[in-house]
Design a protein around this nucleic acid. Structure first.
Lengths: 127, 127
DNA sequence: CACCTGTTATATTATTTGTATAACAGGTGG
DNA sequence: CCACCTGTTATACAAATAATATAACAGGTG
């Protein structure tokens, strides 16, 4: 999977890494059981420090996207606990939807936005 | 409006302030044209530094929630440009929905979550 | 025994966050 | 005119975070 970091972004590098890997899982470019590049390998490829990649992997492990296999390294392993997922996503949504309501976006506006993004991701999956 | 800061949160104080004021606008506790407390007043009330409040106000101004009236101070003034709003919110949604898809949450799951949060906010408005 | 994993420890630099004083410019009301 | 209120700006400083740089360690593989 191609990973691109924007070094001019205000978003931390390890955070960009996390988001891109999650995006990769969502679009099936990474699948359950697949091995991620080693921290040293990926750091070399991107041109960043090993510890920055390690921090991203640690966060992904913490959030239930990855497990570490002593033999192979970091392996995609998504936690599918629906309750936990809805709670976490609801927390983030609450912040975003407050802004949406301020801007006079209706719930129908948001629904179609959600559908558009889901379509976008599913298009990637089927190709 | 009651503003409460969690000093143990990992979220920056000025960011919490921004979010709470946006939440206040969403729930009509702040309305267009209403004057926010002065940076010194609010800083005193919360028990933080003036500059921290000022940073929050500056961000809110930047994002189109507030304008500064030389005579009165910071005034709620929401930018209702729908295109700009959808673009900004879409960007945030894309990150969250990637995680949702990873967790096997369907778009219907998200729709009902969105509805639940909208209901929650509208309940505050009608009371 | 080399070689690959992640992990840990330590140190250093730069940036961000929050605080602390202080001053300045514009507007208001006595 | 003058105190007094706005936000704004300029410094300075401490603490936390982000990123880099070396180096070493433990577990597993071939």
């Amino acid at each position: 999977m191609l990973i691109h970091i924007d070094f001019n972004s205000e978003e931390a590098i390890y955070q960009q890494l996390c988001n891109q890997i999650i995006l990769g899982i969502a679009t099936c470019q990474f699948e359950d059981g697949q091995v991620l590049p080693s921290v040293r390998q990926l750091a070399d490829d991107i041109g960043i420090n090993m510890h920055t990649v390690n921090k991203a992997y640690t966060v992904l492990k913490q959030e239930g996207f990855v497990k570490v296999d002593r033999r192979r390294g970091a392996v995609i392993s998504v936690d599918y606990d629906k309750q936990r997922a809805e709670k976490a996503i609801g927390k983030d949504l609450r912040v975003i939807l407050a802004e949406a309501i301020c801007r006079n976006l209706t719930r129908e506006d948001i629904h179609s936005l959600v559908d558009r993004i889901y379509d976008e991701y599913e298009r990637y999956i089927n190709s």
